[in-house]
Design a protein around this nucleic acid. Structure first.
Lengths: 252, 252
DNA sequence: ACCCGTCAAACTGCATGCAATTGAGGCGCT
DNA sequence: AGCGCCTCAATTGCATGCAGTTTGACGGGT
């Protein structure tokens, strides 16, 4: 297992990486909604670094499509159009098809165990916040991609998955996680059996059912302070733990 | 024609964008080979900007997989492994399948004209350097992607196409552009006829024929000065023109 | 009451300066 | 001669400072 390889190539030092991961999580858990402002100094202050670093992180996230950068303007969390959302889902289906093709019938015991463990975690999180279960559902797919050992595939699947996640927060009705979890279990089963066609159709209808749960009415909400919102994300743990907060200055 | 939309979201100002585009071109035209060193100050000096900007550009290119960044080390042009190369081609085929699906039978007259014009340009470039024809061949696929009007698809197709290009420079024997051009013409024809299946198989065998032209023997070459190499790339024109060079200091 | 012009605060764009790390060459030792 | 250590130039990591741009708030005019 060498799943950490995906993020290493994109990040110069690692402070940048830390900020990227934190913001990504905050975005996909909808703590930061589409349109939320991300001023460089506030971020830098929050994470205990200078604007230079915050800026660099925003650049990376913009390259991933999670953040929008306009010259001389405050960066904002991306607000994908409905059309872009559909496009992202199309691409995602194609990419996950590739994942399935490589994985069908080739999963090792420990990989199956890992997948099951993840779905169990999803199950356990059903009582918690919607945000966490959405993130876990997304990470299931990324976990699958990781098992292909293809860094490029991992990167692309992660990116579009995050994008789709962002989209759902805009256009979808509240997540009903129950069925997604069952679908995940079915996918694992079919993968183990090596029934490629079955997995394909499962995956397709799974993604489709997620995609089509959509409305066209974006739900507006606004206004908490960035410093407060990001507090739980300042350092990332693997599960959902909140660890250390670097010097919280809380100026101004 | 609105092809500029792809790069806008990823770039804060535009100096960064300029450097990115220049380096991308230098890399895919093999002026900068895999493994070539890219020190921040030399780049900054060459393009008349500070290290800060050069650094930011390198970050973006690293996110695209064209450059490798290691902590406290000089950035180098990426050297994809043979396996990564295969993976990239797999993904590319899948993505271009999407492009074809969206485009088959739906091309407008002016789009067809644009495509033909591009292939004509490829034809004209056959006498010139290999580097240029390789770039043009790659850009044909990007041009197609552009016509889907799906920014996300454009971005991904561009990225993997560039990556594949980089790969070819490592593992492929010298480009024989003749057949590629004919294949491009055939693809246009089938797209116009709306024969989706035909285009698919054409595209598949086209990409496959490119991919399988590969050897496993990387060709070593080394040593020109970065400042000299980048001279023609300092400002990008659309075709192949070399325009203005910002203050060339040529210190040290 | 509403609209528009002006101005100050906020924010980004970019360069530069300083500290920390690397790796390459030189020197001495065996 | 070969091998290892040590020192120093080259280079990155990061913060800060200054200049230009945008925002939005206030006040006067209609």
């Amino acid at each position: 297992m060498a799943p950490r390889s995906a993020s290493k190539s994109a990040v110069p030092s690692d402070k940048v990486g830390v900020i990227c991961r934190a913001l990504r999580r905050a975005i996909i858990e909808q703590a930061l909604e589409p349109g939320a402002k991300l001023p460089e100094d506030s971020l830098g202050e929050r994470f205990g670094v200078s604007r230079t670093i915050a800026r660099h992180a925003l650049g990376q996230l913009a390259a991933e499509g999670l953040v929008e950068l306009r010259r001389n303007r405050i960066a904002v969390v991306a607000t994908p159009s409905w059309q872009e959302a559909r496009d992202a889902f199309d691409i995602r289906i194609e990419l996950e098809r590739l994942v399935v093709r490589q994985l069908a019938g080739k999963l090792t015991k420990s990989q199956v165990a890992e997948l099951n463990a993840h779905v169990d975690a999803e199950d356990r999180a059903r009582d918690g916040s919607d945000a966490v279960s959405i993130r876990l559902a997304t990470e299931f797919h990324i976990l699958l991609a990781n098992m292909t050992n293809s860094p490029i595939l991992v990167r692309y699947v992660s990116e579009v998955a995050y994008r789709c996640c962002l989209t759902l927060s805009l256009y979808s009705r509240p997540h009903s996680s129950e069925c997604a979890i069952n679908e995940h279990r079915a996918i694992i089963a079919a993968l183990v059996k090596g029934d490629e066609a079955k997995v394909m159709s499962l995956m397709h209808s799974h993604l489709d059912s997620v995609a089509s749960r959509a409305l066209v009415a974006p739900a507006p909400r606004r206004g908490r302070d960035l410093l407060d919102i990001l507090a739980p994300y300042a350092e990332e743990g693997d599960g959902g733990r909140v660890v250390k907060l670097p010097k919280v200055v809380r100026a101004r």
